[in-house]
Simulated assay, not measured.
Amino acid sequence: MTVESLISTVTPPLKDTDSVEFALGLLMEFRVRHLPVIDSDRKVVGIVSENQLLDSDGPEVVISALLNADPVTIRPTEHIFEATGLMIEHDLTVVPVINELQDYLGLIQRQDLFEWYARTLGTQRPGAIISLDIEERDYSLSRLIHAIEQTGTRVHSVGTEEAEHDKNVVKVTIKMDTLDVARVRLILEHNGYHVSGSYGTPEEDLTERIQEFMRYLEV
């Protein structure tokens, strides 16, 4: 999925000759905290933030006086992950998109990225969620998916991140197509996985199923 698919031209850029007062009005109208700034040739010359505008010397100050060198930009052919990384690294709510000639094409907004991730991760599909803590040396996605699919469950999405308490531990979050997470949890724990959380099954039902499974193992 490339940036091109999420380019928006609804929110207009600022011109480097615009005033702080005008810029603040646009920020309020389009509910963003940053706006790209272009020159008369439609080249991106900077990005201004709400804080910069509020800290300026007055409403009549020209935007060009607030700009920093080397504005953050992205090409339409780059992956959405790259846009996400730029937003996080520079704490931005928008990233300007430019072509190979450095011409301004539009922008990509944090809200649009959020909605894309929500669709991609299947957050709107019905289904349970399970979280696991796995030692990095033991992490195998194919093995994990195979264990889950043994229960007849399909995986909608998988997310991973480094555990805060231990850099050698991978935190894995899985969205599945079942609302009954108990059976999946039992199988995973039986295969040696540490399940740190599960969401989608009442706790009392989960406890009952665990007890049933333990009785089964003792037979």
Score class of each variant (00 low, 15 high):
Val20Trp: 09
Ile38Glu: 01
Ser8Tyr: 00
Val169His: 07
Glu203Leu: 11
Leu141Gly: 00
Glu212Phe: 13
Asp57Phe: 14
Ser142Leu: 02
Thr153Ala: 13
Leu53Ser: 15
Arg143Leu: 13
Ser131Ala: 14
Glu204Gln: 14
Val158Lys: 15
Leu107Ile: 15
Thr153Cys: 08
Ile130Trp: 11
Asp41Glu: 13
Arg125Ser: 12
Leu54His: 15
Thr93Ile: 12
Thr207Met: 08
Ser64Asp: 14
Leu35Cys: 05
Gly152Thr: 14
Ile80Cys: 04
Asp205Ala: 06
Leu188Trp: 06
Arg110Thr: 07
Val3Gly: 02
Thr123Ser: 14
Leu27Ala: 06
Val45Asp: 10
Arg154Pro: 05
Val61Ala: 12
Phe213Gly: 02
Val181Asn: 00
Leu141Ile: 01
Glu161His: 03
Leu101Ser: 07
Gln52Ala: 09
Gln211Cys: 06
Thr9Met: 01
Lys175Ala: 13
Gln102Val: 01
Thr207Cys: 01
Asp70Arg: 11
His146Leu: 14
Asp70Phe: 15
Lys167Val: 14
Ala163Ser: 09
Arg215Pro: 04
Asp41Thr: 15
Glu162Ser: 09
Arg42Asp: 01
Thr77Leu: 13
Pro36Leu: 12
Val97Thr: 05
Glu189Arg: 04
Arg154Trp: 07
Leu66Cys: 11
Ser157Ala: 15
Val62Asn: 04
Ile63Trp: 10
Thr207Ile: 09
Val3Tyr: 03
Thr160Ile: 06
Trp116Asn: 02
Lys167Gln: 13
Asp166Gln: 05
Tyr117Glu: 10
Thr84Asp: 05
Leu35Trp: 00
Met28Phe: 07
Asn51Lys: 08
Val48His: 10
Leu53Cys: 09
Val169Lys: 06
Pro12Cys: 05
Glu50Asp: 15
Gln109Ile: 02
Leu206Gly: 00
Gly122Phe: 02
Asn51Arg: 15
Leu105Ile: 00
Gln211Asn: 12
Ala147His: 11
Ala83Met: 04
Gln150Asn: 06
